[in-house]
């Protein structure tokens, strides 16, 4: 994949085009989820240091000085090494990132290299300037792929892991309800081919939230959607006569999602 193969706009999506002509988009993690993940990590580091610190006096058996030295080195190693070690072994995730379902990725879709993980974490020193990751946060807000300086240097991006569940179709469609569109299987097959996953999903969401809409908006919205679907495939008037726009959209989704 060439650099030209990477596209993104400020809608926070990162798209990868493979040379085989396949395209997939990854949603980028914004500054808020990254800040929350960092806060969880900070809490984990503090807790871990505290717990280990409770056992440090045991090293005082050797000498109090030695125990202090180990504490200083351990605290430093935790601060610098925590994210490096976790991101290396957990494929771009720390405890905080896992909790927030975000992941560090190479910006070409490749496996993260150790040098990328090290540099993005060492550069926290500049991202955290002057305090509380202000510089990193600002750069993250204005940069094209929501990257802080460490990410820019390491050529990494932080993406959201999207868990997409199958739509709960039974919530919307009533069992055994007659759907006039099903009388035309060849048109149904054409509809399945012409309607893209995104528009189907959008219409499904609209149907799920229809009760939250004001009556006027509800009529207008389903009118737009019905018109859109009617343009895709024209059903004979016998199939669509007397049914409202909303019923039509429901009928379309019924044949799309239920076999």
């Amino acid at each position: 994949m060439t650099q030209e193969g990477i596209h993104s706009d400020r809608s926070h999506e990162f798209t990868i085009h493979t040379p085989e002509g396949v395209t997939f988009s990854l949603p980028l993690a914004g500054p808020t989820s990254r800040l929350l993940a960092w806060m969880i990590d900070f809490f984990c580091i503090s807790a871990f240091v505290k717990v280990v610190g409770m056992f440090m006096p045991l090293l005082g058996v050797v000498s109090a000085d030695f125990s202090r030295a180990v504490s200083i080195l351990f605290f430093f190693a935790m601060n610098i090494g925590y994210a490096i070690v976790f991101e290396y072994y957990w494929n771009g995730q720390t405890l905080g990132k896992r909790a927030l379902a975000v992941r560090v990725m190479d910006n070409r879709g490749f496996r993260l290299r150790p040098s990328q993980i090290v540099i993005r974490n060492l550069l926290r020193a500049v991202d955290s300037l002057p305090m509380f990751y202000l510089l990193g946060g600002i750069v993250c807000l204005v940069s094209r792929h929501a990257q802080r300086l460490g990410d820019l240097a390491a050529n990494t991006i932080v993406v959201k892991q999207v868990k997409v569940s199958e739509p709960d179709v039974d919530q919307v469609f009533e069992q055994n309800r007659y759907n006039s569109l099903r009388d035309y299987p060849h048109l149904v097959a054409r509809l399945r081919q012409r309607v893209g996953p995104r528009e189907a999903r959008l219409a499904f969401e609209a149907l799920l939230r229809r009760d939250a809409l004001s009556p006027e908006s509800r009529v207008a919205l389903f009118n737009t959607m019905a018109r859109h679907f009617r343009e895709k495939v024209k059903f004979p008037s016998a199939a669509v006569e007397g049914i409202s726009d909303e019923q039509y959209v429901r009928g379309v989704l019924d044949v799309l999602f239920r076999r």
Binding site: M1, I16, T18, V22, F24, D106, R108, G109, F110, R111, V162, V164, S165, E166, P167, R192, Q193, V195, G196, P197, E199, A200, R201, L256, F257
Partner: peptide, 24 residues
């Protein structure tokens, strides 16, 4: 195919991972 969202996501993830292994 509009309704095959989960299948598409599965394949996208698989192709993405294989792409990383091959080109990376």
């Amino acid at each position: 195919y509009s309704a095959e969202l989960s299948m598409r996501l599965f394949l996208e993830s698989l192709v993405g991972r294989a792409y990383g292994v091959i080109y990376g």
